[in-house]
Design a binder for these strands. Structure first.
Lengths: 196, 196
DNA sequence: GACGGTCTGCCTACTAGAAGGTAGGTAACG
DNA sequence: CGTTACCTACCTTCTAGTAGGCAGACCGTC
């Protein structure tokens, strides 16, 4: 119980990379086996089925996201800075090609063809991000850190859509800089007008 | 040559539906065979390889899009109305579940794992939509039909990202209405201020 | 502290079915 | 007669998943 087996972590990590490339149906146990340096059958020892593997992966992805959000909120008081931090996180991921696309964005597009257990986990991720962004919008609106033109939950969904849409465009054009090009005016629009 | 074989059209149509569900790796010739009522091998007669099939599919998808754009521009003079029309098109598709997701959006997320011939066709689609939206933005800005806060091509990318992001959210939540909820303020923001 | 038992992590070897694709034949049609 | 559209039958490779074995770590018990 000392630490959660390094191997299963390696399996999850390589699965994440593979899903980022081609989604749920775009990778196989054989692919993971090559990367991790373990036999195909041994992966089944850690994750009985593919659905188990991806469900666990998405679950952890959400938990990690929740943890990141907590530390972000602790270190950054201003709501606008939080949104900038969130956008910045993705800017870096996309630009250094380390995590150039959100796993859950890809899985969400495949939703209708996903095993139900995975699908529910993916929608749970979206609900989490959405409700978190809503609280940020609400707080920022009250404190004056953000200038909203719609209700907080609408602004939250619009911001989320912009981020994920921008991620898609960056991938489609093969130009990482497209992401921040789109996000910059979106953040600007939420910035209180100091020249007023 | 009378009309392009109905069968190959049926194959393309069912492939489109299947891709909308699960992407490039989410369907097989066997799936199409079941829907169309033709043997697996007969599909190869029309489309030698899977990549051929999807490349042709995306190519036609773009051509159809270009044709739709032309008629839209002919019938609708106002730039804002064009953007509303474009958004409306997707609203209807998503709400009646006829085409609840853009084929190219799904393929774009899978880009790194796509056969190159398909990938280039997908990026071509995005370049087309992007450049078209840019001309709409430019025209609307000059005529006063649109109120832009950034350069036309940036506004175009931002609008496109919003549309595709909203499409993803609608799918992720399983709530079609989310799409227009996000698009409404985006369009509002582009509307010239009459109360000024 | 040696002894037997269980648990863990991995292996080889295998299966059944699905994947994309091929070979070759047949019937209709201009 | 050649072309078109479809068929049956087949091939290879890949798919997720199973069966069973084996070495080592961990375990209390004598």
């Amino acid at each position: 119980m000392s630490n959660l087996s390094t191997t299963s972590d390696a399996i999850l990590a390589s699965a994440r990379n593979l899903i980022m490339r081609g989604g749920y149906n775009g990778f196989s146990y054989a692919d993971i086996s090559e990367v991790v340096g373990i036999r195909k059958a041994s992966i089944h020892h850690h994750f009985p089925s593919k659905a188990d593997l991806v469900r666990e992966l998405v679950q952890r992805y959400r938990e990690d996201g929740q943890a990141s959000v907590v530390t972000l909120e602790q270190n950054v008081p201003d709501a606008l800075d939080i949104l900038k931090g969130y956008a910045d996180h993705w800017t870096k991921c996309i630009e250094d090609a380390s995590r150039p696309y959100c796993v859950c964005a890809l899985l969400a597009s495949e939703l209708p063809s996903l095993p139900p257990e995975v699908a529910t986990e993916v929608t749970a991720f979206f609900r989490f991000i959405s409700s978190w962004l809503t609280t940020v919008m609400e707080r920022g609106s009250k404190s004056g850190a953000l200038r909203l033109t719609s209700e907080p939950h609408v602004e939250a969904e619009a911001f989320l859509a912009t981020v994920y849409g921008a991620m898609l465009s960056a991938r489609a054009y093969g130009k990482p800089e497209v992401f921040s090009m789109i996000l910059a005016p979106a953040l600007n629009r939420l910035t209180p007008n100091v020249s007023h």
